[in-house]
Every structure is written in structure tokens, then in C-alpha cells.
């Protein structure tokens, strides 16, 4: 039970990071972006690449951070990966979605996002190969915090939780204290009114993509650190991300955080009750149950 709680919060915090970007974009641009999950893969692989680059450049960077399996070069690589993934997200918007926003309906955008996700996934497969890989091939052994009830924890996992928490708090401060935050909140609530209040819609949309992409990169890195890198990791995560965003209410950043935790905990705790074979149904059940009780999600507002 304790172990399942811990695992659920861990998976949930990673999902929350991914779902924040998804919910922002879904709300601002009014379409379900199925390619968002691929940004997680992209971020994870960018980090892998730059880890290798930094590692080759300097011996100092190959040192591990205290306690963790993360090297300094990987930590630096994550920062680069965030910037690059954010930029890639903005470029994808420029090349694909921006044109379609003008010319086509939301359904076309959804199909286009499917197409984009296939392209990104296959490009990753082409460049990095189809096999799964790891930042560090040595398996990090878990520490037994308690035997009964069983609780096994890795230092990396504590690190992931702390990182997710720090990023969420930072995001909260940015959104509530800075004018950039106000701009994003305003555009996500009411794009027309935002323009009327002097906000440049195009620039804000770009900002949202970059923010979403950056957060996706972090989420992808955390996921890959705890599990593995694979070209299909985005595909594996997309349903859980959507469940988190929908449960929280499209457009609500705090909802996405709560939704991520709910989905993570439910997937983890459910195995206590149901056989493992039925696990893939859990995100669907959560979506259905939420929509049945609260059609706009927990934090969502009706339109």
C-alpha cells in the first residue's frame, strides 16, 4: 500500500509535468494535440544526445551528482533539451498548426497532430534506433526504507519528485506574480479579451508552445530516468497525459497537476484490487468517471 502510494505520486508528478503543457495548448488553441506526448520523447532524446556531447568535452562533467545516477553533463543536457524541445514545439506550430488554424477546423488540427506525432516518433526511431536505451546502463538499486509495509525508494526518484515540485512551484509563481504569467492566463481564458487588452496573441501562443515543450522535455527526462528511453515512449504516455488533462479540466494548470497525481495513483493502487491485465483500462475509466460526474473536469470551466 505504502509502496503503491509512493509509486503513484512519482508517476503522477511526471505525468503532471507533461499534462501542464498539454492542457495549456489544448485550451489556448482549442484542439486536442496528440503530438504533445512526442515532445516528451524528443526532450528525453535531446538530453541523451547532449549528455554524450558534454561527457566527451569534459571529464569533470562525467562525475555524478551526489547520491544520484545523474551526471553533471546530463543535468546540463536537460537544460539544453528544454530549450530545444520548446523551440521545436514552436517550429512545429509555425510549419503545421498555424497554417491550419487559419484554413481548417479543429478536427483537421487533431488529425494533423496525429500525423505530426507519427513523424516525430519515426524520426526519433530513424536517428536513435528502435531499441530502448538508458541514460545510465547500470541499474540503480533501490534502498529499502521499510520492510513491512514494503517501501523501496531510489535516490533518483526522490530527485524526480523534488524536481517536479520545484518546477510546479516556480510555474505557479511565474503565473501568479509575473506579467508573462498574466499574459498566459489571460490568453488561455479568453484570447479575444486578451487581444483587447493589448496582448500579442501570436507571440503568446509561441510562448505557450515553448513553455509546454520545455516542461515536456523535463517530464520526458524524468520518465526516461525512472524507466527507459524508447521512440514509443510518447505513444505509451499519451493516454495517461490526456487523462490527467481531462480529469483536471482542460486549461487548468493546477487541474493538470491534480489530474496527473490522480491518474498515477489510480494506476498504481488499482493493481491491489484488480489483476494486472486490466491496468490499461484505468486511464479510460478515470476519464469516463470524471466526464460523467463533472463534464468540464475537476477545475475546468464551462464555455
Amino acid at each position: 500500500m505504502l509502496q503503491s502510494l509512493f509509486d503513484g505520486i512519482l508517476v503522477g508528478s511526471v505525468l503532471a509535468l507533461g499534462a501542464i503543457g498539454l492542457t495549456l495548448i489544448m485550451h489556448i488553441l482549442r484542439f486536442a494535440n496528440f503530438s504533445h506526448a512526442e515532445l516528451l520523447s524528443l526532450g528525453a532524446y535531446f538530453a541523451l544526445t547532449f549528455d554524450a556531447v558534454f561527457g566527451a568535452v569534459s571529464n569533470v562533467l562525467v562525475q555524478k551528482l551526489p547520491w544520484l545516477s545523474v551526471t553533471w553533463s546530463l543535468a546540463c543536457a536537460v537544460l539544453i533539451a528544454m530549450a530545444l524541445t520548446g523551440a521545436t514545439a514552436a517550429i512545429i506550430d509555425l510549419l503545421v498548426f498555424r497554417r491550419l488554424r487559419r484554413l481548417a477546423g479543429p478536427l483537421t488540427m487533431v488529425f494533423a497532430s496525429f500525423g505530426v506525432s507519427l513523424i516525430v516518433r519515426n524520426v526519433i526511431g530513424l536517428v536513435y534506433g528502435l531499441r530502448s536505451t538508458h541514460y545510465n546502463n547500470d541499474i540503480v538499486f533501490a534502498m529499502m526504507i521499510s520492510a513491512d509495509p514494503l517501501l523501496l525508494v531510489k535516490a533518483d526518484q526522490i530527485f524526480i519528485m523534488c524536481l517536479a515540485l520545484v518546477i510546479m512551484v516556480a510555474l505557479h509563481l511565474v503565473l501568479t506574480r509575473t506579467s508573462i504569467g498574466y499574459t498566459l492566463l489571460a490568453v488561455s481564458e479568453n484570447p479575444t479579451l486578451a487581444q483587447v487588452n493589448g496582448i500579442n496573441l501570436g507571440a503568446t501562443v509561441r510562448l505557450a508552445w515553448m513553455l509546454g515543450g520545455g516542461l515536456a522535455a523535463i517530464a520526458g527526462f524524468c520518465y526516461a530516468l525512472n524507466n527507459q528511453l524508447s521512440p514509443v515512449m510518447g505513444r505509451d504516455l499519451v493516454l495517461s497525459l490526456f487523462a490527467a488533462a481531462i480529469v483536471g479540466g482542460i486549461g487548468s494548470i493546477y487541474g493538470a497537476v491534480l489530474g496527473g497525481l490522480i491518474v498515477g495513483l489510480a494506476s498504481s493502487l488499482a493493481l491491489i484490487i484488480i489483476p494486472a491485465g486490466y491496468k490499461p483500462a484505468i486511464p479510460f475509466l478515470i476519464i469516463l468517471a470524471t466526464l460523467y460526474v463533472r463534464p468540464n473536469g475537476l477545475f475546468g470551466q464551462s464555455r
Binding site: 509509486d7 520518465y223 514509443v232 495517461s240 491491489i272 494486472a276 490499461p280
Partner: peptide
């Protein structure tokens, strides 16, 4: 006897069940 499904983001919960 634990069933493992395709394409799950994490198998930690399944593994934990077996570990117990």
C-alpha cells in the same frame, strides 16, 4: 502470476505486486 500489457508507461506497480 502477473500479466504484463503492451506499451505501458511504467511496470513498477506490476513488479511491486510480484515483489511482495
Amino acid at each position: 502470476s502477473v500479466a504484463i500489457n503492451d506499451a505501458q508507461p511504467s511496470y513498477r506497480a506490476e513488479v511491486t505486486e510480484a515483489l511482495k
